[in-house]
Design a protein around this nucleic acid. Structure first.
Length: 359
DNA sequence: AACTTGTACAACCGCTCGGCA
DNA sequence: CTGCCGAGCGGTTGTACAAGT
């Protein structure tokens, strides 16, 4: 019992749009609008295209005032900070970047931005003492960005001393991501959600998923301390796939029902800062998250010091009880503040990103 | 020059959500 | 309340092109 197709697949054209098709669609929408019905639109125009395809073409390519390519450093940083805050909610992120589409941002993240960060993450030696890492020499870039300037994503790892047995993964946070002031322009309907992993299944799926995504030189994370109850099959899948030094969300789990997160950061825009509540980035975090369990796909941000844990202080750590609620886990300060007053529970971990450039 | 590999981006697919009857 | 349907979203795939061998 599958869902009925939105159009007759046999009679619709697929693949790249011709200039003629573009012209037809654009002129019609500019004259008449979409009419609120994308499905009927192609018939009206005489296009042999699926309505969804028309919508996508219009939104991602033909719509006026769209920018293509040439992402600025500021846009990079906004994307990074929002991704950290709300995850892969590209439409929400796109709403913060005028002229950008969700598809554009998603592609940009997947093809460049993530590799720019993750690639560096993988290449650099880890825990070998003091070393500096600059994000300005990535081979994936073809000279389109202005890298290496003071506003780029840069980080310096200075101190790798660790007293824990997970020294291999022990990050030393010293430098700061350069985050621009982010004036939110629209409500963020998902800002209260963040990556929600509020049950064991979610955690397990996440771990397994991450296991497939990362591979390399790092020790696999231990499940000790997470109190996740894996079936033997799940555990096998996990152990087969996970070869990471970091994974998953900031789990500081505690018992069978409760899993806690801690997360902080300092956001640069002073006007936007909403001070969180909380406590230190406690030893218990280090102990209970032996492999640095960080948000989905973002471990490198932490391990590379892009998110500066030195900044964590007694005012900024919060916990989330998974057993009770769908409480958000990762929040941007401004996102969180933006959503206050809407009846949304805000016992979230607020990021604070330092902003060295801000005076 | 020919082939292979890597990258960027456009487009598609399938799912979820919300409006409406 | 329920089911249908369209819009929207995010993940994935396809393709063109550049770079490397």
């Amino acid at each position: 019992m599958g869902r009925a197709p939105c159009c007759d697949k046999a009679n619709v054209k697929k693949g790249p749009w011709s200039p003629e098709e573009d012209a037809k669609l654009k002129s019609y929408i500019e004259k008449h609008g979409t009419g609120g019905n994308w499905i009927a639109l192609p018939q009206k125009i005489g296009l042999k295209r699926c309505g969804k395809s028309c919508r996508l073409r219009w939104l991602n390519y033909l719509r006026p005032n769209l920018k293509h390519g040439g992402f600025s450093e500021e846009e990079d940083n906004i994307i990074c900070s929002l991704y950290i805050s709300i995850g892969s909610r590209w439409s929400v992120i796109a709403a913060q970047l005028p002229g950008r589409t969700d598809n554009d941002i998603k592609n940009y993240w997947n093809t460049r931005l993530k590799k720019k960060l993750l690639g560096k993450h993988r290449r650099e030696p880890r825990n070998r003492g003091n070393y500096n890492v600059k994000q300005d020499s990535d081979v994936n870039n073809r000279g389109s960005s202005t890298e290496g300037d003071s506003s780029s994503l840069s980080l310096v790892q200075e101190n790798t001393s660790s007293t824990h047995h997970q020294q291999q993964q022990q990050p030393c946070w010293s430098h700061n991501i350069h985050m621009p002031v982010l004036p939110l322009q629209v409500p963020l309907p998902y800002a209260n959600q963040g990556p929600c992993f509020n049950d064991q299944d979610s955690i397990k799926k996440l771990l397994i998923k991450l296991g497939g995504r990362f591979s390399g030189d790092y020790y696999p994370p231990t499940l000790d301390g997470l109190n996740l109850q894996f079936s033997s099959d799940e555990q096998q899948i996990y152990q087969e796939q996970v070869h990471v030094g970091s994974s998953s969300a900031c789990i500081t789990s505690v018992n069978n029902n409760d899993v806690q997160f801690t997360q902080t950061g300092q956001y640069p825009g002073a006007d936007n800062i909403v001070q969180g509540q909380g406590g230190n980035f406690t030893p218990s975090f280090e102990e209970m998250v032996p492999s640095s369990n960080y948000p989905d796909g973002l471990e490198f941000l932490y391990n590379e010091g892009i998110i500066d844990h030195k900044l964590i202080d007694s005012t900024t750590t919060t916990t989330t009880n998974w057993g009770e609620t769908n409480t958000p886990i990762y929040h941007h300060n401004s996102l969180a503040s933006n959503y206050q007053g809407q009846g949304v529970r805000q016992e979230c971990a607020l990021h604070e990103f330092s902003y060295p450039g801000a005076q």
